[in-house]
């Protein structure tokens, strides 16, 4: 690829981006290097390979660079699907580097054969300070808008709620239930949790205070009565502000073969 600076840069960039994307522990860095690797370099080098020295003008080059890069990703995913190991980060990196390398090589050969039409060098635009400032304000405002969209804002009029759930404990503790209470209320709430086995209170009620967004998971041992039928375990949640009014109810039938 000697004498074709753009192609050499494309190949070097592809290798570098692939390596950094694979090893970087920082998501932002990985994303930043993945963008050219996925969305620019395959399309640019393939367009160069197709058109050789008579490449299209800039607008068409931009269209083909983006559209062919997307196409490489679409077709590449189908190719990788049938490769050993399937679709993985390493296989993607390898595939994209190979595509860029092969296309750049092909482009260099075609250019050597046909001669290269010199493209006018891209120059930085010269603009007045006011124009540059306006441009900057526009870009900053757009970025501010997108950032604002990602910031969760308090929604005071939204109706909060509390969820109660019950599942058997994992890992062989068959007579222990996990009971969760999660608050998505707007304010602190106090609760009373009552667990009943076949309608009879199992232990004393538990008091909980949850702040918004908090979840408390309790491990509640259940003393199962003798018998062969599954046993109904019920969890009832009351709010302290309305202690007699049932707020939430969950239930689970513990199979007898799980009971001790």
């Amino acid at each position: 690829m000697r004498g074709h600076r753009d192609l050499s840069v494309a190949v070097a960039a592809a290798v570098l981006c692939a390596v950094i994307a694979l090893v970087s522990p920082w998501e932002t860095v990985s994303l930043l290097v993945s963008l050219p690797l996925c969305l620019l370099l395959p399309g640019y080098t393939l367009t160069s390979a197709i058109f050789g020295g008579r490449g299209p003008d800039r607008p068409r080059l931009l269209l083909l660079t983006l559209a062919i890069s997307l196409s490489v990703l679409v077709v590449g995913s189908i190719v990788l699907n049938y490769m050993p190991g399937g679709i993985r980060d390493v296989s993607w990196a390898l595939l994209l580097v190979l595509v860029v390398l092969a296309a750049a090589r092909g482009a260099a050969l075609r250019r050597d054969k046909a001669g290269t039409r010199r493209r006018e060098r891209l120059r930085l635009p010269q603009m007045a300070k006011l124009d540059a400032a306006l441009l900057g304000v526009g870009v900053a405002a757009a970025l501010a808008g997108l950032v604002l969209a990602q910031i969760p804002l308090s929604a005071d009029k939204a109706e909060g709620f509390t969820s109660l759930w019950m599942l058997p404990a994992r890992g062989g503790e068959d007579d222990v239930m996990r009971i969760g209470v999660a608050s998505n209320q707007q304010d602190d709430e106090e609760y009373r949790l009552v667990v009943r086995v076949e309608g009879k209170d199992a232990g004393s009620p538990r008091k909980l205070t949850l702040v918004p967004g908090e979840e408390e998971v309790l491990r509640v041992p259940v003393d199962l009565p003798a018998g062969s039928e599954p046993v109904r375990v019920g969890a009832s949640l009351y709010r302290t502000e309305a202690p007699k009014k049932l707020f939430r109810r969950a239930s689970y039938f513990v199979p007898r073969d799980q009971a001790r």
Binding site: A132, V137, G138, A141, L148
Partner: peptide, 26 residues
């Protein structure tokens, strides 16, 4: 003084308006 095919005086104002427009939508 603009020698590029793009009139940056216009484009600067238009980008500014578009950015502010997006901010308003947001």
């Amino acid at each position: 003084r603009v020698s590029s095919p793009v009139d940056w005086a216009w484009l600067g104002r238009i980008v500014c308006a578009a950015g502010v427009g997006l901010l308003l939508c947001s």
